[in-house]
Simulated assay, not measured.
Amino acid sequence: MQFPTNLRWESIKELRILPRHGVFYLEWVYAKPSQPHPLDPTKVLAIDHGVDNWLTCVSNLGHSFIIDGPKVKSFNQGYNQEVARLRTNKPQGFWSRHLSCIAEKRNRKMRDAVNKAALWVVNSCLEHSIGRIIFGWNQGQKQECNLGKSNNQNFVFISTERLKERMEELCQHYGIEFIEVDEAYSSQASSLDGDELPNYGEKPDRWQPSGKRVKRGLYQTARGWLVNADANAAANLLRKVSRTLGLCLKGLSRGVLTAPLRVRLWTV
């Protein structure tokens, strides 16, 4: 067996032998010292997650970008369809070596996507000296959602929770504060109109957003402006914590929410 050439043997703390899909994997574990950077806690990036737009990111500095999701959704759907085909007319619980191979291939692609997306977001924060990341998240949301058979298949098995965990690990390493925020009503309220943002289960009587989602991916404000719906949701996450964290939101504008930069992980 040939070991990797970049191992630092003096730093290795642990060896792990892991059985997975019919083979054994050997992992070398070593401590990686943190690398704090000069960051500004008043500079904040908010993240709204989804499927086609895997991560939509808006900062209070006036820039925005989207980590594209269709590639991840595509190989996830292909894996699910192939597993369903191979298990057709087979006994319940059927598994085979071929199924193990395609499962391992899918899992490697998913890990690669998670690492690429998390690193892109963190590098963007380091480039702009952003000291905090706000991540919209509701506990148990993937298990409790009912979006129809096709959408549930996409949403539940795309590893957004693993992506969130990986991003949190990188934030800890570089000294970025990672904050989870209840994302209730963030996609319904209009950020540019300053709509009230109640917490989950606390919606006041007769609460109505001033804007509306006119079609998939497009939100219309009370003034008739059309903005990206997911960017609007991310901006609302910033608004949810602005008073608590003492943030300046002058950088949020119609232009920031209209045309975010789209990042395609395998072509950048």
Score class of each variant (00 low, 15 high):
Ala31Lys: 08
Gln35Trp: 06
Phe24Pro: 05
Cys125Ile: 05
Arg8Trp: 13
Trp207Lys: 02
Phe3Lys: 13
Gln208Ser: 12
Leu26Asp: 04
Arg111Tyr: 10
Ser96Gln: 05
Lys142Asn: 06
Glu10Tyr: 14
Gln2Ser: 15
Gly62Gln: 12
His98Asn: 10
Ser129Arg: 15
Ile130Phe: 05
Asn146His: 14
Arg87Gly: 01
Leu197Asn: 06
Arg166Met: 00
Glu82Lys: 14
Ile47Leu: 04
Phe135Pro: 06
Val227Gln: 07
Phe178Ile: 04
Leu99Glu: 06
Tyr79Asn: 07
Ile130Gly: 01
Leu192Trp: 07
Leu247Lys: 07
Lys71His: 09
Pro41Gln: 11
Val114Ile: 15
Tyr25His: 11
Lys164Ala: 13
Gly50Phe: 03
Cys145Thr: 14
Ile102Lys: 09
Gln141Leu: 12
Ala117Asp: 06
Ala259His: 15
Ser11Gln: 15
Val83Met: 12
Ile12Arg: 04
Asn80Ser: 15
Val44Gly: 10
Ser186Met: 03
Leu265Ser: 02
Pro91Asp: 07
Glu14Ile: 00
Glu196Lys: 06
Thr267Cys: 11
Glu168Cys: 13
Pro36Asn: 08
Val58His: 04
Lys250Asn: 03
Lys13Gly: 11
Glu165Asn: 02
Val241Gln: 14
Val44His: 09
Lys71Met: 04
Asn6Lys: 12
Gly217Thr: 00
Gly175Lys: 12
Asn154Val: 09
Val156Ile: 15
Asn80Pro: 07
Pro4Lys: 05
Val156Gly: 04
Leu247His: 01
Gly50Ile: 00
Gln81Lys: 15
Ala103Val: 02
Ser74Phe: 13
Glu169Arg: 13
Tyr219Lys: 08
Gln81Ser: 12
Tyr79Trp: 14
Ile133Asn: 04
Gln141Ile: 12
Ser129Gln: 15
Ala189Leu: 00
Lys13Phe: 02
Tyr219Phe: 15
Ala234Cys: 07
Asp48Lys: 15
Glu169Ser: 11
Gln35Pro: 00
Lys73Asn: 14
Pro41Glu: 10
Glu168Leu: 04
Arg97Met: 00
Leu18His: 13
Trp266Ser: 01
Phe3Leu: 13
Arg166Ser: 05
Ser11Leu: 13
Arg162Tyr: 11
Ala103His: 09
Phe75Pro: 01
Tyr174Ser: 10
Met110Thr: 09
Lys105Cys: 03
Trp137Met: 06
Met110Trp: 00
Lys116Met: 13
Leu252Gln: 07
Leu197Gly: 03
Ser191Trp: 04
Val256Thr: 12
Val72Gln: 11
Ala231Gln: 10
Ile130Ala: 01
Lys215Tyr: 03
Asp182Phe: 03
Val256Leu: 10
Thr88Pro: 00
Val181Arg: 04
Leu218Pro: 03
Met110Tyr: 01
Pro19Lys: 05
Trp54Ser: 00
Ala189Trp: 02
Phe65Asn: 01
Gln220Leu: 02
Pro209Asp: 00
Phe155Leu: 14
Trp137Gly: 02
Ser150Cys: 03
Tyr219Trp: 08
Gln220Ile: 01
Ala229Glu: 10
Trp120Leu: 09
Gln81Ala: 14
Gly246Asn: 05
Leu26Pro: 06
Ser191Asn: 07
Val181Trp: 01
Cys171Pro: 05
Lys149Glu: 11
Ala234Gly: 09
Gln172Ser: 12
Pro38Trp: 00
Gly211Tyr: 08
Lys203Asn: 03
